[in-house]
């Protein structure tokens, strides 16, 4: 890797758009840059397209402008190893026959490669990640028997074992118990301190300032980006949440 690439921003968007079809574009002309070792909240009302933005960045939406995204100065394919994603809990089939450990080990599949079984070293690594989120004792438990907060922490542990430098998290704090919220906040802060870059969708405006240093206010478009204190002013929030903004509505995403 060249010195230039390693110095490049972990995530850089230049006029990025994404959606589910050409007539259903949910993200319009988004531009922002995340620096190394930053913890940023992606804030906006329901239906603002926050999840679509995350999915689009990772190329998971049918329509996405891949050329407008750079990861560490590279394309997604070149930087895949360094990026991890935490989906919304509701997108997962929790009746799937798997234990907590099985799910965390899935984060290691890419490194293991084809035809290789999940070996002892991989299991130990997965178990260590579970310990980080306080679920060591639940390793063998079927995921269907875990509580909502525990499921969230299992997914976080799966993202952790990927040892990524950039984490994209979709609603990590949604509907979780207090222990889970504290655990996740602590883990994210530790990661950030060690140089990981984190972008997390967050819809509860009241708790952003407690958990995130910086924030992006988003509703179809990026409305503001900066330190959480100064970005999330009452006026800016009202503007984003009332969505009477003609530019937002014309793009068809605001609820």
């Amino acid at each position: 890797m060249t010195a230039g690439a390693s110095a490049a921003a972990p995530l850089e968007l230049r006029g990025f758009s994404a959606g589910y079809s050409q007539s259903e574009i949910k993200v319009v002309d988004a531009s922002f840059t995340l620096g190394r070792g930053t913890l940023t909240a992606l804030v906006g009302p329901n239906g603002a397209g926050k999840s679509t933005l995350l999915k689009g960045i990772l190329g998971l939406t049918p329509v996405h402008d891949a050329g407008a995204v750079r990861f560490f100065g590279q394309s997604l394919d070149a930087a895949r190893e360094r990026v991890a994603y935490l989906p919304q809990r509701s997108e997962i089939d929790w009746n799937f026959p798997a234990s907590a450990l099985d799910v965390v080990a899935m984060g290691l599949y890419r490194r293991l490669g084809l035809f290789r079984r999940v070996n002892r070293a991989a299991r130990d690594e997965a178990r260590a990640a579970l310990a980080l989120v306080g679920l060591e004792a639940q390793a063998a438990q079927p995921i269907g028997e875990l509580s909502g907060g525990q499921r969230q922490r299992v997914l976080l542990a799966r993202a952790l074992v990927q040892r990524a430098d950039l984490l994209l998290l979709d609603e990590p704090f949604a509907n979780v118990d207090e222990l889970t919220e504290r655990t996740i906040a602590r883990v994210l802060e530790d990661l950030r301190a060690n140089g990981t870059t984190i972008l997390a969708v967050h819809h509860d405006i009241g708790t952003v300032r407690a958990n995130f240093a910086s924030a992006i206010l988003f509703n179809v478009r990026v409305l503001a980006h900066g330190p959480a204190e100064s970005t999330l002013t009452d006026a800016a929030i009202v503007r984003a949440y009332t969505a009477s903004n003609a530019a937002n509505l014309s793009a068809g995403g605001a609820a």
């Binding site: 999915k55 990772l58 190329g59 998971l60 394919d77 895949r80 990026v83 994603y85 989906p87 997108e91 997962i92 089939d93 799937f96 798997a98 099985d102 799910v103 899935m106 984060g107 599949y109 890419r110 293991l112 084809l114 035809f115 290789r116 079984r117 999940v118 799966r158 990927q162």
Partner: peptide, 22 residues
């Protein structure tokens, strides 16, 4: 047996499979 890992991941979380480059 050969594709046990990959098939399980595909069934459980297709987005994760795609995102990690499978």
């Amino acid at each position: 047996v050969l594709f046990m890992k990959e098939l399980a991941l595909l069934a459980f979380d297709r987005n994760h499979a795609r995102q990690t480059g499978a």
